[in-house]
Design a protein around this nucleic acid. Structure first.
Lengths: 125, 125
DNA sequence: TGTAGTAGACTACGGATGTAATCGTTTCTG
DNA sequence: CAGAAACGATTACATCCGTAGTCTACTACA
């Protein structure tokens, strides 16, 4: 398996769009990013192109347009990005990261319960 | 408060050394990184210099040497890096990140218990 | 006191990134 | 059918980053 290509911050925004819904034309991706990112359509095209170059996206031609789809699984990229983050900030350990998030990020009571359930499952396996 | 300067991946390794113990001379930082990073001492010097430029480190002079210390708090940089990570990968939401870490990272039973305790405290406040 | 080491400052350089503009071709519209 | 609009490909360019090398001044030893 080709390990996940390294995807830059801006490129992630484009990938998210296509992981949510695909295949899409460049124009549809541009549209999906309006309001979220203040990018020229040119910029989005460039990112699409680079992602194809990195083999993170693939496309089929449809007339003179391309229909883009992810070529890597989101879960795989999440794992990769998370590991890098843990390495950089927490020396690779998940525990301090979890503690940081739990104590610093806002969680709804329902979410807290859900996490507790997850932890319980985790322990009994 | 000056918001946390943006610290690159390599620079984080240098900051970690100085957050753990400071002040240190350049040579001591180099020594602390041996074995962990396969960097020329030059490289470490460059990183120290850039970090001073970014005002992430400060120094006092000691003879012809510098004694480097952090100029930003670790916790502040962790918060900044964590937020960026959440934005990039999880659309800014902590919950999916937590779920990902809990279900994908290896946790010891004791750690699971500790997280549960943390969550309990969280809920009752 | 001259000389070799050591320290920090400055310079280097290729690749990644953010952010487009331009070019050549195809298609749509009047 | 001719010009305009749209598409992807190629080019641009400043900055950051990883990873050093060189230059200059001071220090410590012979």
């Amino acid at each position: 398996m080709a390990s996940a290509p390294s995807i830059s911050v801006s490129e992630w925004a484009v990938m998210q769009v296509l992981w949510d819904r695909s295949p899409l034309t460049a124009a549809e991706v541009v549209e999906a990013l309006e309001g979220e990112k203040d990018w020229s359509p040119r910029t989005v095209k460039t990112l699409l192109n680079r992602l194809v170059g990195k083999r993170a996206l693939k496309f089929q031609t449809q007339g003179n347009k391309y229909l883009y789809s992810p070529a890597v699984r989101r879960e795989q990229c999440i794992r990769h990005a998370s590991r890098s983050f843990l390495e950089q900030v927490f020396g690779g350990a998940a525990m301090p990261a979890l503690i940081h998030l739990v104590t610093n990020e806002r969680l709804k009571p329902g979410e807290i319960d859900e996490l507790r359930r997850l932890l319980d499952e985790r322990r009994s396996s």
